[in-house]
Nucleic acid binder design. Structure first.
Lengths: 193, 193
DNA sequence: AAGGCCATGTAAGTAGTTACATGATTGA
DNA sequence: TCAATCATGTAACTACTTACATGGCCTT
């Protein structure tokens, strides 16, 4: 149950409407917990019903902007959640799965995918690096900024890893093409307990 | 839609029953695509109905073991899926979210969590390293094994990253405790657009 | 008054999770 | 024959996704 807490965090950083939240989930919070506007509006409704947030203006009509603010109970809920004990989730990555499948049915068509992913991760890494240079350049950061910087560094570290791994994989892929062309085409029938 | 393809891959590697698949999803394929036995049985039913796999023995009764094998159409489906174009999914990590929340409501109770996660990632890294030493020690690997080794190296790289990042974060966490104790307790009210 | 955008929402479907139920086999 | 374990399954729920609907406001 992370989405409500992501929203509480975003609203504590700055009271917002659903659409504003949606936009911030496309740039900032959303870098490590994405959500669509449908999820956000639904969750805002639930949070309001649970008295964890409340709308600033009244205007109950459709199509009208509604700004939300976190109530003390919402802050308490978030504080409690920060301290909860949650095991890390195992990796869930379709590209790795496809590599594993390619080991069985052949690697046809995979190389362009690796290239596309490499390009995407390079882009993301560049974006994070730019944010780091813009927002965390100086060393004089408060405690809050230090935490945000740690989070950003996680993003940078992960993207750096993917860029390195994909580069290495592509090299091995291309290098192995000649050596194992037969394996890839005919030997795709295997199975090894 | 990755689960059916994960199952097709596992069944091509070795025809299995639902429970055997479940066990393999706890050790091997499941390292990067986990699934419970309920998901697996449901998906086996769908794959059989779609004529992508079929049961080897007959025995339609409950509580009886049913082994499945991949049909040519299943292999074709998997081959096509390997070549599909899929954008990488953004990071989704509750711990990073909690760090971000901690920047707003204070970091109370987070440090033990970082320690727990660090221990878990160390364990996972040790498990992967052991597998690498056992299964991929020699350099004489076929094309299929090279792909599996790439996948394993991704796991090792990711766990290595998390161990490094958590170690660094814990150090900064502890070092910053004295300096920003006031920030953490009283200054948690902020908000900075 | 028409078109475009801002803003909120509904509906339906897919995927994954949690809790529980049931039958078959084996060994004490 | 009882308990444990193997094996398959149902049911209900939560989270997320995709497609579409509706209303308000601003500009031309």
């Amino acid at each position: 149950m992370s989405l409500p807490h992501a929203i509480l965090t975003a609203l504590l950083e700055k009271p917002s409407s659903g659409l504003e939240l949606t936009r911030r989930f496309d740039r900032s919070i959303g870098f490590f917990w994405s959500a669509t506007h449908q999820q956000i509006y639904r969750e805002l409704g639930k949070l309001e019903q649970a008295d964890l947030i409340h709308a600033l203006a009244q205007s109950p009509s459709r199509g009208q902007k509604r700004e939300y603010e976190v109530l003390p109970a919402g802050r308490a809920e978030l504080t409690a959640w920060v301290a909860t004990s949650q095991d890390p989730k195992p990796i869930r990555d379709a590209l790795l799965l496809r590599l594993r499948a390619a080991a069985v049915v052949g690697r046809d068509g995979l190389e362009p995918e690796l290239e596309r992913h490499l390009a995407a991760h390079r882009r993301q890494l560049a974006e994070y690096t730019e944010i780091e240079e813009r927002d965390f350049a100086a060393g004089n950061l408060g405690g809050e900024d230090r935490l945000r910087h740690l989070v950003l560094r996680a993003g940078i570290g992960l993207e750096t890893f993917w860029v390195a791994w994909l580069t290495e994989s592509l090299a091995e892929f291309r290098g192995a093409d000649v050596a194992t062309a037969v394996d890839g085409a005919a030997g795709a029938d295997g199975g090894r307990g």
